[in-house]
Amino acid sequence: MKKGFFANHLKDGILYKNPILVQFIGMCPTLATTTSATNALAMGIAVTVVLAFSNLFISLLRKFIPSEVRIAGYIVIISAFVTVVEMVMHAYFVSLYSALGVFIPLIVVNCLILARAEAFASKNPPIPSLWDGICMGLGFTVALTLLGAIREILGAGSIFGFTFLPEIMHVSMLVLPAGAFIALGFLVAGMNKLMSKFAEKKEDGADV
């Protein structure tokens, strides 16, 4: 394992290789569940848990799963963890369970999870794979919560369910599906601006 792997990987997950803002994977829950910051955060945490555990187990079993049927094996493992998360939410977080509804079982087909299984967990030892799952999940959660917060603040005048703007100032369109695309576009634009500034600074530093 390379020196600085853990810190670099965390930076990659949240900034440089953010699954949503840079890689654009896992768009379905991104657009569908970010109507409020609470829903977005819950979705992010659920995906992070599934991603961390599926990465860990796929990595542990990577030499045992025949490569001809690896995708089938991964999907079985992923769907088992998704079902566990769904059961736990149904039992202990009923309001979140009913708010996220059908999008919880749909985590199974979130391409972020299968992408990390195929690209990372199937080629690396368990601990880095677990860490990869946590980092990518965190990046996913941060981006989702940001998007959810923007849509909730501007669209419904509240944050985490706490209302502070009068109804006349709401841009209700942002809560509708089209608003998700528009808000995501601005978020990605902002992220690119930020990244290009970072890159410029790095180059300046190299010149000196």
């Binding site: 566990v84 059961m87 736990v88 039992a91």
Partner: peptide, 23 residues
Amino acid sequence: PLLVICTLCAALLAGANALTEPV
């Protein structure tokens, strides 16, 4: 190997179900 994986996953789900079902 697929059979083994499915069995393990089924056992995991059975355990989770036993814990959450009453609630």
